[in-house]
């Protein structure tokens, strides 16, 4: 149901843009107003979410330790999986954010007869990391539309990405790989009954938005050509705040439409994991809570419990019978207080 709904949303988006630009000619609305609004939503929304998280304290150090703690000198510890210092935490986070360390650990459990078998299962890691890095590269590549002169490094990325010189204009590797990765991420949600069971519309929708974004981009580059000079004049206008919507094919506006939808959807969805991953207390803290006294929760009070003296009063008889010593200090203190 979720997948159908998401698909309909995406189709509706294409239709709306098509009608809006192709038929009604509302280039200003779809080329300027909506993208600006979407970008603003993205920026403000994400900052708002971040502040929302930041306002909540982290009362306990609930590190998930995936390696040996620091203890005795001669015990080899795992600095990356059980970080003791903040520097090691940074390394752990870098590994997590840039290499998807935890996902790399993934296993697949299978019940074969009476035995549970575990095997390494890195496809999800591969799909995820391929997708994320391609997305980032594509994003960076697009910087050529927002800069003049285009920085050498952007051009270099462009060259590397089109290294194989397939077709004309050259096919970007990232375009091909991101399509494959997206397809994998999508198909596994449909094909694996467990994933199908847990997947919601909000899992399919961003996938479809990105699909739409990528496909419209590829179509524009290789099939339905648009005048790229006009496009760049427009994008440069956007960042200089006097945009003139280009008179180019609807495909461009569909591309922009998907981008706007994605940006606007970002802060309200699971996509906030982009920033949230940095704030996960099981990963971003040092496993040194026995060595360092960390700041307790703002609401922390010394816990109220039955003190020894209260307890001794209760079990006085039993203590005496068992020959256990009574603490005279209890009575001294009492005397003082009274």
């Amino acid at each position: 149901m979720g997948v159908v709904f998401s698909f309909l949303v995406v189709m509706a988006l294409v239709l709306v843009v098509y009608l809006g630009v192709g038929v009604a000619g509302l280039r200003g609305l779809f080329g300027v107003v909506i993208p600006y609004a979407a970008f603003l939503t993205f920026l403000v929304g994400m900052v708002y979410r971040l502040i929302g998280w930041a306002k909540v304290p982290v009362p306990f150090r609930i590190v998930t330790t995936c390696g040996q703690q620091k203890s005795l000198r001669w015990v080899k510890r795992s600095r990356l999986e059980s970080p003791y210092t903040n520097f090691e935490v940074v390394l752990r986070m870098l590994l997590e954010v840039f290499a998807f360390r935890s996902l790399f650990r993934n296993l697949k459990a299978e019940l074969k007869g009476p035995n549970l078998i575990y095997g390494s299962y890195k496809w999800l890691w591969l799909g995820a990391i391929a997708f994320h890095y391609c997305f980032l590269t594509i994003l960076i590549r697009h910087f050529r539309f927002f800069s003049y002169p285009v920085p050498k490094v952007i051009q270099l990325i462009d060259q590397i990405d089109s290294f194989f010189h397939i077709g004309l204009p050259h096919l970007y590797m990232t375009d091909a790989v991101i399509l494959a990765a997206l397809t994998f991420l999508f198909v596994r949600r449909l094909a694996d009954p467990r994933l199908r069971y847990i997947s919601l519309a909000s899992d399919y929708l961003p996938l479809f938005f990105i699909y739409g974004l990528v496909i419209s981009g590829i179509l524009m580059r290789h099939f339905f050509k648009v005048d790229v000079v006009q496009v760049k004049q427009f994008t440069m206008g956007l960042v200089h705040f006097h945009p003139v919507p280009p008179k180019v094919g609807v495909i461009f506006y569909i591309h922009i439409g998907f981008l706007s939808a994605l940006m606007a959807y970002f802060p309200f969805s699971k996509l906030v994991h982009m920033l949230g991953v940095f704030l996960s207390p099981t990963r971003n803290l040092a496993n040194n809570s026995r060595a360092v006294r960390h700041k307790p929760a703002p609401w922390w009070k010394k816990p109220k419990f039955k003190t020894y003296c209260e307890w001794q009063e209760m079990f006085k008889e039993a203590l005496e019978q068992a020959g256990l010593p009574l603490d005279e200090d209890c009575y001294k203190d009492k005397g003082k207080k009274q």
Partner: peptide, 14 residues
């Protein structure tokens, strides 16, 4: 995320 805005600011492309 705002690189396109500030990296270009004031430099209108001919």
């Amino acid at each position: 995320v705002t690189i396109p805005f500030w990296a270009n600011f004031g430099k209108a492309a001919p």
